[in-house]
């Protein structure tokens, strides 16, 4: 797994040598700052619950932007052939690229830490609820990134990769609204697949094994599918 680290650090450097990373960060933080002010001003509560709900909605749109080039660009430029003809396992390539996107996302998330500091300065916020909220938003973002990495591995076209990721993520995000069209086991399945159903507990300070399993297994499922996709000739 040493090569996972080598690939991740190269990818992370690539993120920060392109202006897109800075643009995404500045725009996201600007929006978060405005929303944070509005929420605190309106609710007058020392909680980040509503902030997490808005951040999760934002990440639905941001994750495909982080990830659309991960494999699509490599395939377009021919560097995928270079990576796959070095003595590097396909799983190391997938984990390395995924890790870099997750670290980038984590940096963006850490830049929102001052919101907690502000709450702490003016009030006494519920620290465990904020920590579990951050854990939830991190797992959810990491799950969306795994989906984006997977769709990027299916095509050479970054736009197609991003659009496919949007479709999958939005289906999982809004599937809670589809529940009424089903009954019995299918309804239970749609309910289980809903991302919102699993993330909301984290935002109110509850961590359940079921929710952890949902996100972690979802991440590994999409990373496994990504590995299969890059091994498959049709996706090259």
């Amino acid at each position: 797994m040493k090569k996972t680290g080598i690939l991740a650090s190269k990818e992370l450097r690539a993120y920060f040598t392109s202006p897109i990373a800075y643009i995404v960060m500045i725009l996201s933080l600007s929006v978060f700052n405005v929303l944070f002010y509005m929420i605190i001003d309106q609710n007058r509560e020392a909680v980040l619950r509503d902030m997490f709900l808005l951040m999760e909605f934002m990440f639905v749109f941001l994750a495909p932007i982080f990830t659309m080039k991960v494999f699509a660009e490599e395939k377009m430029s021919g560097t995928m052939e270079f990576l796959q003809t070095t003595p590097t396992r396909n799983s190391e390539i997938v984990y390395g690229k995924y890790l870099s996107s997750v670290v980038f996302f984590l940096i963006l998330l850490l830049l929102t830490a001052p919101y907690y500091a502000i709450l702490e300065f003016f009030s006494s916020p519920d620290v465990p609820a904020i920590l579990t909220g951050y854990l939830g938003i991190f797992l959810e973002g990491a799950f969306f990134i795994a989906i984006g990495v997977f769709t990027s591995a299916l095509t050479r076209n970054q736009i197609v990769a991003a659009l496919s990721a949007y479709v999958l993520i939005l289906l999982l995000y809004f599937s809670v609204g589809l529940e009424k069209f089903f009954s019995g086991t299918p309804q239970a399945l749609v309910h289980y697949l809903s991302v919102m159903g699993h993330s909301k507990n984290f935002f109110i300070g509850i961590v359940t094994t079921a929710d952890l399993i949902y996100f972690i297994s979802g991440i590994f499922l999409f990373l496994t599918l990504t590995r299969i996709a890059i091994e498959n000739r049709l996706c090259r």
Partner: peptide
Amino acid sequence: SEAPPLYPDMVVKDFLRFAARLK
């Protein structure tokens, strides 16, 4: 390969170092 496998944003020696580590 037929299409030179290069990362345009990388510095030459960094790319070679990266290739060396992968190999």
